[in-house]
């Protein structure tokens, strides 16, 4: 009985850490998007939005290198997009930490399953971003 109780508590410790990680990721993303929003609205607030026609990748920040270039030159839209990338990475970080969690529990079956999920996401991310 004490064995299962211990395992339950151990499980929960890892989950609480992961929960905190998720919250920090969302808060960080929120703050960065907000900062980018201020820069963007101050500079472009008076212009007319154009979202009726889809332009694909042209004119938007759609690769890591483009976002990074815009970020260091202080473009509002690039700062927002950087916050959004952090937001996208948050659940992925959760999966990565879960691999470590399952390894610590010596649950190799689930360390493998979680690693498979992580691989699917990372391959799609890299294929999608053309890395």
């Amino acid at each position: 009985m004490t064995g299962t109780m211990k395992k339950f508590r151990h499980d929960r410790d890892i989950q609480v850490t992961i929960g905190n990680l998720l919250r920090s990721g969302v808060v960080l993303a929120f703050v960065i998007v907000l900062a980018g929003a201020i820069v963007y609205l101050v500079r472009h607030g008076g212009q007319i939005p154009e979202y009726q026609v889809f332009r694909g990748g042209s004119g938007s920040y759609h690769t890591f290198s483009a976002i990074w270039e815009g970020l260091i030159t202080g473009h509002g839209r690039a700062i927002i997009q950087f916050g959004i990338v952090i937001l996208i990475l948050t659940p992925i970080a959760r999966i990565a930490f879960s691999v470590i969690g399952f390894l610590l529990e010596k649950d190799y079956l689930y360390a493998g399953i979680t690693l498979a999920v992580l691989a699917i996401i990372l391959i799609s991310l890299m294929a999608g971003m053309g890395v």
Partner: peptide, 9 residues
């Protein structure tokens, strides 16, 4: 993101 669906504005 890569296809430009995710517009920051």
């Amino acid at each position: 993101l890569y296809r430009g669906y995710i517009d920051p504005g």
